[in-house]
Design a protein around this nucleic acid. Structure first.
Lengths: 213, 213
DNA sequence: CAGGTATGTTACTAGCGGTAACGCAAGTTT
DNA sequence: AAACTTGCGTTACCGCTAGTAACATACCTG
């Protein structure tokens, strides 16, 4: 156990950092991703330069803020994907985990995934530039998982990566649309997406009296 | 045919507008989405207020700029999806149309789809806020198409919309990743994605000596 | 010729991210 | 005890942005 003034200093610095992050989170969840550094500093009861000393720049603050949520989400997703069950059940569980997180904290989700909502006054958070890494991480992790577990013949690594990113994109886009329109309960969305992945698009019959599809 | 000074004025105004849009396009393709109104005005050889008179605000200019490209892309996609051929062929042709456009004009693509690349100096174009509408439009159009052409039983409308948005998201995410990493030729990516949609994920065998997936 | 209308300018505001320079308190060293 | 370092905090500023108000100029119309 480390003691002495250095340790005390570091621990207070870390506590301070957590306080600042909590203040930033409050502001971001209230004002959306266009929250300004001034506003965050004011919420924390201090002034801008302190924020910059702690986080370097706005991107640093954002990343620190995003990591709190992405790490937890990634862990849940890994668990769902790795649970002992049939393949389809696990795919559904994973989709459901993601969508449940989105449903439970839509503001957090929007902050992580969506660029500044309104004005192009891009002084806000350029979340898009940071959401990409998250989606990329998800895609890469899924790719590794698929490649490890499935026998896909030649080109399996390439195929797995295409699928990893494609499936993550599907989940993301469908979830985004669903969150906005809420056209059905979550379990139904999950089932529909799993149906899509299970080839129901290919197997569907053409509608009578229509050109083929 | 309308004549007289009013018509002349309007036609010169429209020509001016086109000139301004072309200047804006040059700047955006050169400087990325963070191009400033000042830079665009300078490129056009005029000053800011003229831009604002023509396009209202930065978002207006962006929308005018985006429409030029999205309309053409949407038309190509509709044509590919509606061509006389087998379903899988048409799905592949549509994916390929999208990816070919992405491949042919990556800068345009990035402008349409990606928020300001670097600094969070969000004075740039908040493209994310505008790309969403494009992806949404694509998803909705595909949903209508699927619902019209396929016999999906009960809940067909809901199912078609989930699939529409999900497939568009898959295409978008995979294309985005592919554009960055270029891991394989286009036709291979198309085939992999079509395989995914055709249920090859569900049909794949587990790898020997591994937990099931 | 008088008058409106579109086109253009200069000069400005308000707000942003980011930083330099300084004050101050507390603990450490001599 | 005095002097020095070190971290926390401030004020005041920079350069940039989007957007606007006010003014000038040309041109076509009555």
């Amino acid at each position: 156990m480390e003691t002495g003034p250095r340790a005390a200093q570091r621990s207070t610095a870390e506590r301070r950092r957590r306080e600042l992050l909590e203040a930033a989170e409050r502001v971001v969840l209230r004002d959306g991703p266009r929250a300004s550094m001034n506003a965050i500093a004011a919420e924390a009861g201090i002034t801008k330069p302190i924020l910059y000393r702690h986080f370097g720049d706005k991107g640093g603050l954002y990343r620190a803020l995003a990591q709190r949520h992405t790490d937890a989400l990634l862990e849940s997703l890994r668990a769902s994907l790795d649970a002992p069950a049939e393949r389809r059940e696990r795919v559904e569980a994973t989709l459901d985990t993601y969508l449940a997180a989105v449903e439970a904290h839509p503001q957090v989700y929007r902050f992580l995934m969506h660029p500044a909502e309104d004005a192009e006054t891009e002084q806000g958070f350029d979340v898009g530039h940071h959401s990409a890494p998250l989606l990329r991480r998800l895609g890469e992790e899924l790719a590794v998982f698929i490649e490890e577990r499935l026998d896909l013949g030649p080109d399996s690594e390439e195929l797995a990566r295409v699928w990893g990113h494609g499936i993550v994109g599907m989940m993301h886009a469908a979830g985004d649309w669903w969150l906005r329109e809420r056209p059905c309960p979550r379990e139904q969305l999950v089932a529909h997406l799993a149906d899509l992945l299970w080839g129901r698009l290919a197997a569907a019959a053409d509608r009578a009296g229509r050109p083929t599809f």
